[in-house]
Design a binder for these strands. Structure first.
Lengths: 121, 121
DNA sequence: ACAACATATTGACAATCTTCAATATAGATG
DNA sequence: CATCTATATTGAAGATTGTCAATATGTTGT
């Protein structure tokens, strides 16, 4: 084989050549990653699903009925959703009524959508 | 207070009343949750970002340069992405060239988008 | 065959997440 | 105030995840 023939090594010569550019900063990646984490649990998805249907009228016992975990676990997931700003709650007598914070959910949705769009051909 | 007045307890009387309906099945919630997990790490997001820009031309060393973790960790994340079907790779000489599987990414994107749409007012 | 390189795998460790029983808090009722 | 109900918090145990050093595997050029 003549030395000017293209070898495997030469063909791959682009490899590791110049600096790879990113359209996502580390901070953005971290933010979206946090977003995805909050959503990334079946129980939390089901909770949001219920909340979306019975806007402003859902007490914890309704949520307990909808998911296959015990009450302290429901409470735990509600706290995570609340800390993420996706839901909030009001007390009415003995009950807590949870509801979706639509602006926050919309913002999160838009961040995720924008990120997914980056990956499209 | 007359006994027919609305008490806190009565006002909340809807609580726990009838069966709450879900538009998401447990299996669907689990599927989307898995989807979100694969995406839910900054390093994997950055990897997908790079792959999206240099379609079919990215060797592992390029990816190593783009993310703040060591080579075995890059390899680990690539494996997760691959097992999820989101990327695949071809060997060219000593190098592995990774690329996005766009149909798979599109399917995932559509599942996530559909789910987020459920939660909109 | 050997040396040099690119990538994958293994194994270990630390950190984080999920769950639940037990317990605490808070409001409503008698 | 005593008690009941609804929800939150605590603490502990197990599972999962992220990371890397060390090592293995596979490829190329000598």
């Amino acid at each position: 084989m003549a030395s000017h023939d293209i070898t495997e090594r030469e063909r791959g010569a682009r490899c590791c050549a110049d600096g790879v550019t990113l359209s996502l900063s580390m901070a953005e990646a971290q933010q979206v990653s946090d977003d995805l984490h909050v959503l990334g649990h079946p129980v939390r998805l089901l909770i949001l699903d219920v909340l979306a249907q019975y806007a402003g009228k859902v007490c914890v016992c309704d949520l307990e009925a909808a998911v296959p975990v015990k009450q302290p676990t429901v409470s735990h997931h509600l706290r995570l959703l609340r800390e993420a700003g996706l839901v909030d709650a009001e007390r009415h007598g003995p009950w807590m009524y949870y509801f979706i914070r639509h602006e926050a959910l919309e913002a999160l949705r838009s961040r995720i959508t924008r990120m997914l769009a980056l990956f499209e051909g």
